[in-house]
């Protein structure tokens, strides 16, 4: 394999991997904090792409501002979804409601949310695919290696978002509260903190990450109302692969899936996806909690 081919495959892998990382970090934050397995996460990603289309393509708002607006818009959608569905549902739970039953009901509610968001987008934007002009159409040609500048920007943006998330989670009091709530919400409440609003913010933050992922990727691909369904399945696989509750695991899982899909397709063709599933099965047999997670309730 030539160096040029290797670099191109690596850039493809990092681009796709970084989007899955953002998606799964959002999924993981929601799952750890609110104990909701959010099947509507793909639709939040799709709406992020539509918001990007609306602001950047239609209203010609600055690229970075459009990205921020997509993140904010999805945080609001996420918060409202939590308040309108999951908060009401959780009030029905009693002390005797088992964790697995709560998880199942929340997952079912998220399937309902998924349908609402899907149909809502369909009504608002129709079925037609939308294209967004690349904000960075330049091609970097370095020693005969051609790399799209947009892909490089996507990778950099994803790294910045991950860094920002790390600082938020580990260097701020809000992050500490969020982590504390994810471990033991009752204990946090006993400390005089209103855990409910922390959970709302937790769902909003996870949704914002999905929206940002959709908005970041939108100019690279096209915007369709099917894009959420395509991405959610692999996102769950990345979550299982990396391990629930481990940010480092998520990053490693996302990168592994990106590398497998990119290099696998080059040498094995369409069966590359099969190898992702096989890898997940093997990892789960060896380590039921995923690469860096723990197999606990």
């Amino acid at each position: 394999m030539s160096l040029g081919l290797f670099v191109q495959l690596l850039v493809n892998a990092l681009t796709i991997g970084s989007i899955y990382i953002l998606m799964v970090l959002g999924l993981d934050i929601i799952l750890r904090g609110t104990k909701i397995l959010n099947f509507a996460h793909g639709q939040l990603y799709m709406i992020g792409a539509y918001v990007m289309f609306l602001f950047f393509q239609m209203l010609h708002v600055n690229y970075i501002v459009s990205l921020l607006l997509a993140g904010i818009a999805l945080a609001i959608v996420g918060a409202l979804s939590y308040l309108g569905i999951f908060a009401i549902l959780s009030k029905r739970f009693t002390v005797s409601t088992s964790f697995s039953y709560r998880l199942l009901l929340s997952a079912m509610a998220s399937v309902g949310l998924m349908m609402i968001l899907q149909q809502g987008t369909l009504l608002a934007f129709g079925t037609q695919e939308r294209g967004i002009q690349s904000p960075f159409p330049q091609i970097l040609d370095i020693f005969d290696v051609r790399i799209s500048l947009l892909r490089v920007v996507i990778i950099i943006l994803s790294v910045l978002v991950c860094l920002g998330l790390y600082l938020l989670m580990y260097k701020t009091s809000f992050g500490r509260l969020l982590r504390a709530v994810s471990y033991d919400p009752e204990a946090v409440t006993l400390q005089g903190v209103n855990a409910f609003w922390i959970l709302v913010l937790c769902f909003a933050l996870g949704s914002a990450l999905a929206g940002l992922a959709g908005a970041i990727i939108a100019p690279l691909f096209s915007v369709t109302n099917q894009m959420g369904q395509n991405v959610i399945f692999l996102s769950f696989l990345v979550l299982l692969l990396g391990g629930i509750g481990s940010y480092r695991g998520t990053i490693i899982g996302g990168l592994l899936v990106g590398l497998l899909l990119s290099f696998g397709f080059q040498f094995l063709g369409g069966v590359a996806e099969l190898f992702v599933f096989m890898l997940v099965i093997i990892i789960l047999i060896i380590r039921p909690g995923g690469l860096l997670g723990e197999a606990t309730e």
């Binding site: 081919l5 191109q8 495959l9 493809n12 681009t15 796709i16 892909r151 690279l220 691909f221 096209s222 369709t224 099917q226 894009m227 395509n230 899909l261 990119s262 397709f265 080059q266 063709g269 369409g270």
Partner: peptide, 20 residues
């Protein structure tokens, strides 16, 4: 003859393979 799923959006892996 290279085949892709009808809902594919990322053609970079296909293009890289075609270029080789």
């Amino acid at each position: 003859n290279i085949f892709y799923p009808r809902d594919t959006q990322d053609f970079a892996p296909f293009a890289t393979k075609i270029m080789s």
